[in-house]
């Protein structure tokens, strides 16, 4: 097992970070767990467009303001909070929410509301401060954009696809989920020169499927400019240990597949400073097997 030296430095760095970003909205229990439930189940009637009962639940401030019947959250007392009480009535009760046979909250969602109110109904309490909350359905992908919106460059993307014989596929309907560089249909057409020509859209590509292509170490220089790259598959390419150093600027790279390449332990060692790298595969190479998840093996 190769040790993962960057993790030796991770703890102090994280401590500093934690102090700085404690109030970042995306790390709070409210933003991560409570707001998504309200957004999904409540704001159709209690939001910007409709305010039934003069109540809005589309922001923390609005939630705390309450509706025509007064406040809906009594911090620390779920059983005295209308937000909790109204969703836990008998479904036949005329006060039951969501009304009009709209999809009710799941038991897990109710539990999240209960725990949050019991813990003080804070906007800023970090996610980790409230223990025991059930995992939410459809864990929300972090709402951070993985890449810039590709749509303004759609014409350019289409032109590059045509010229280079490869594909640039949106990962989902969300235009900031980035593009996949896909070469499975014609791996032989994708070479170092083709990669270089992708420069105008390099920042849009979050996944590069380059298995069995003609990429060499020289191509990795172009790849280094794929600033939002998360996953890179170099299976069965001519890449060697010498080239891997070129990947150093890929600060977001999380997974790297080097199966059946010319890499060895020296090359793998060059990867140790990639801060986000969690998974590396080196099957059928001269490198010793690396832990797939260094975080797990460090324990």
């Amino acid at each position: 097992m190769t040790s993962w030296p960057n993790f030796r430095h991770a703890v102090p760095a994280l401590a500093v970070l934690a102090a700085v970003v404690a109030a970042r909205a995306e790390d709070t229990f409210y933003a991560q767990r409570v707001a998504p439930i309200l957004e999904q189940k409540c704001v159709t009637c209690h939001g910007e467009k409709k305010q039934k009962g003069k109540l809005r639940l589309d922001s923390f401030a609005q939630l705390m303001r309450g509706g025509e019947g007064g406040g809906v959250v009594q911090a620390g007392e779920a059983k005295d909070s209308a937000l909790f009480v109204r969703v836990t009535l008998h479904p036949e009760d005329e006060d039951f929410m969501p009304a009009d046979s709209k999809p009710p909250l799941t038991p897990d969602e109710v539990k999240v509301l209960e725990l949050w109110i019991a813990a003080g109904a804070s906007e800023t309490a970090p996610l980790s401060s409230i223990q025991g909350a059930p995992a939410l359905a459809a864990p929300k992908a972090p709402m951070v954009a993985l890449a810039p919106d590709w749509r303004p460059r759609a014409a350019q993307i289409a032109q590059l696809e045509k010229a280079l014989g490869l594909r640039l596929v949106a990962r989902s309907h969300l235009p900031t989920d980035g593009l996949v560089l896909r070469t499975a249909g014609a791996p032989g057409r994708c070479d170092d020169a083709a990669l270089a020509q992708l420069a105008p859209v390099a920042d849009l590509i979050v996944e590069a499927e380059l298995a069995r292509t003609k990429i060499t170490d020289a191509g990795l220089v172009s790849l280094a400019t794929f600033s939002n790259l998360r996953a890179l598959d170099l299976t069965r390419t001519a890449v060697t240990s010498g080239g891997l150093g070129n990947l150093a600027p890929l600060g977001k790279l999380e997974s790297l597949n080097l199966t059946s390449t010319g890499v060895d332990d020296a090359g793998v060692a060059r990867l140790k400073d990639l801060p986000a790298l969690r998974k590396t595969w080196v099957f059928d190479t001269r490198a010793a097997a690396v832990a797939e998840d260094p975080a797990a093996s460090a324990k």
Partner: peptide, 8 residues
């Protein structure tokens, strides 16, 4: 088949 093409 390719999404950006579709949208373009």
């Amino acid at each position: 088949r390719s999404a950006p093409n579709l949208l373009a």
